[in-house]
């Protein structure tokens, strides 16, 4: 399934909760969650570990808005809103970790 997280990993536990139970599929980081996939962030190790079992995406416009586009870690794919739509269509179920 597609897991959608929109919280900074340093403020809330949504990313931790998602990665704890997720069984593969894809992870899309949006809004404040995009910080999790930026160089030097304390959550990067968790993202890197997650990449072994799932595809990881970030919403590019959210990275741009936050001035973090040049810090995206390798192996994470940046998508636009059209890519977001494609991901939702690709996976039969999705869950927003609010």
């Amino acid at each position: 399934m597609l897991h959608i997280v929109n919280k900074s990993p340093l403020e809330r536990n949504a990313l931790d909760a998602c990665l704890r139970v997720a069984q593969g599929g894809a992870l899309l980081l949006t809004e404040d969650a995009v910080y999790a996939a930026t160089r030097g962030n304390a959550a990067v190790e968790k993202i890197t570990a997650a990449m072994a079992g799932m595809k990881v995406y970030v919403l590019g416009p959210d990275l741009d808005a936050r001035g973090m586009s040049d810090r995206l870690i390798e192996g994470v794919t940046s998508v636009g809103y059209d890519g977001f739509v494609d991901l939702v269509a690709e996976y039969p179920t999705n869950q927003s970790w609010l």
């Binding site: 929109n6 809004e31 919403l59 636009g80 809103y81 059209d82 739509v85 494609d86 269509a89």
Partner: peptide
């Protein structure tokens, strides 16, 4: 985010 998602989905013919 929801609004921009809807716009993108409609643009794709969904």
């Amino acid at each position: 985010t929801a609004f921009l998602f809807c716009k993108a989905a409609l643009a794709k013919g969904h």
